[in-house]
């Protein structure tokens, strides 16, 4: 079971890097004669209203979701971890101010925060990724701070100071390596969360422009054919679920 989640992630990464290895169909230009066909050997996920192969669109769309998620996690991880480390190792008023700011960020639900960023920056794939990343800064900062504080209280950190270690040396040798594990696990989890959030924003129409095959947008377009063509929404959604589930599993494993 363990390898399954790694396999899913590896497969999706390959989709993003070398999509042509997995599908011969054009994701943008369809064959109108073959429109709205159900799943078959020729079209695994069926075809959409203008005769495009849905599987090809999902494969070619993975690059948008993955790169977006990478940017989002990068923003959250870097900003959040730095703020958390600073708060946890400096302590005092700096700690107080940073963590109260994080409280404010945390008091606004992720999606609303992302929408606020989008209304300021405007829609678009990169802005959506940044918006989602900003939403996870507080979570990373809190975790990183908690870990640093926990590790700093441990006897081995005091012992390191006791044997003549300087602040920077102790931070680098003991505090950082021992507090980063859970942060990395959170990054894996946030990767799944980011894919979810990006597809949600795509669904609401703030991400990529049609006809880009972004996953959320793909599902949104399928809504008009709910009564007749279930595969347009169900199958791409199932792919999203599989990837997010896999990221969650991997996060648990790392922890």
């Amino acid at each position: 079971m363990r390898w399954l989640s790694w396999l899913v992630v590896a497969l999706v990464v390959l989709w993003a890097v070398v999509p042509w290895l997995f599908t011969g169909y054009d994701p943008l230009n369809g064959v109108p004669a073959e429109k709205l066909q159900g799943p078959s050997a020729a079209h695994w996920f069926g075809t959409d209203a203008v005769g495009r192969d849905v599987f090809a669109r999902v494969v070619h769309g993975s690059v948008h979701s993955l790169s977006g998620a990478f940017v989002a996690v990068g923003v959250g991880l870097v900003l959040g971890t730095l703020l958390g480390l600073l708060a946890g190792s400096a302590g005092g008023p700096a700690d107080e101010i940073i963590m109260r700011l994080m409280d404010v960020l945390l008091s606004v639900p992720g999606l609303l925060l992302a929408l606020t960023v989008i209304i300021l920056l405007g829609p678009g794939t990169v802005n959506v990724a940044i918006a989602v990343g900003v939403g996870s800064v507080a979570a990373f900062a809190r975790l990183a701070r908690a870990e640093v504080v926990r590790v700093r209280r441990s006897d081995y950190v005091e012992a390191a100071f006791g044997s003549g270690g300087t602040f920077v040396a102790v931070l680098w040798r003991h505090v950082l390596p021992n507090s980063l594990g859970p942060v990395v696990a959170l990054a894996a989890l946030q990767f799944g969360v980011a894919i979810l959030a990006i597809s949600t924003l795509g669904f609401l129409g703030y991400g990529a422009e049609p006809p880009t095959p972004e996953w959320g947008l793909l599902i949104s377009e399928g809504r008009n054919y709910l009564a007749t063509s279930w595969w347009l929404t169900t199958l791409p959604g199932a792919v999203v679920v599989a990837v997010v589930l896999a990221a969650g599993r991997i996060s648990k494993e790392i922890r």
Binding site: S154, D155, Y156, E158, A159, A160, R173, H174, P177, N178
Partner: peptide
């Protein structure tokens, strides 16, 4: 507690 005073990763 010697376990607590030794860095588990070293």
């Amino acid at each position: 507690n010697p376990y607590g005073s030794l860095d588990p990763r070293h």
